[in-house]
Amino acid sequence: MLRDITIGQYYPVDSVIHRLDPRVKLAGTMVFLISLFVTSKLPAYLLATGVLFGLIRLSRVPFRFITKGLKAIMILLVISVSFNLFLTTGTPIFRIGFLQITWEGISLAVFMGVRLIYLVLASSLMTLTTTPNQLTDGLEKGLGFLNRFSVPVHEIAMMMSIALRFIPILIEETDKIMKAQTARGADFESGNLIQKAKAMVPLLVPLFLSAFRRAADLAMAMEARCYHGGAGRTKMKPLHYEKRDKNAYLLMAVYFALMAASRFLPF
């Protein structure tokens, strides 16, 4: 169950996508996400689908790794799709009590579902092909201009990288505590909702304690190494763009232009 969470889990193979500059991948993910919301035309979605699956192929990450992230949003997906399905007004198809399904509802629900799924797939693709370190490096450099507006970019990036770094650690920790309590006869699966919630206490208390302990240890270790925030800090491996990165930006622009242009399609 816990192995289903893919955020912050890097899949180590070598591919074009892996080699891209993290800023390109961040920008690309943003562009892709926005592009899904600028249009609701079918051809545009076919294009987006093609691009997404093409990129997944290029990345050489097995497809089932990318779809693992979907399990986590299953409930959200079901809720938002059914809300759209049942609560949209328009041309009714049939109704049960106060619930009615309309053509508009179906189309909204489908778009909503597809958008959510693509959103998760695209961000999973990014995190699976980019190490957390690269990711925050990319963020820090990419958003560096915000420093001028006294936004503490470095500190935010550092917090992000720590948070990302902690995800697998906490998952592992949860797994460990869960096993330890299972060895003491705990049962996390059966029972009704209240029993299940109660069964979580022996898991959550030790987990929170360990999270705080780890945070305190990390803060101490950072101070011991004279960490004092971003001012004056230099990089061992500064980011710089290669030719492929520039090409990627170009393709991104073309893709986005196409997506935006699809708004003016007559159907």
Binding site: I177, A183, P202, P206
Partner: peptide, 13 residues
């Protein structure tokens, strides 16, 4: 078959 994990004190709650 009782199993005591490494650092079992971290499972106290």
């Amino acid at each position: 078959v009782g199993l005591v994990f490494q650092y079992p004190e971290y499972q106290l709650f």
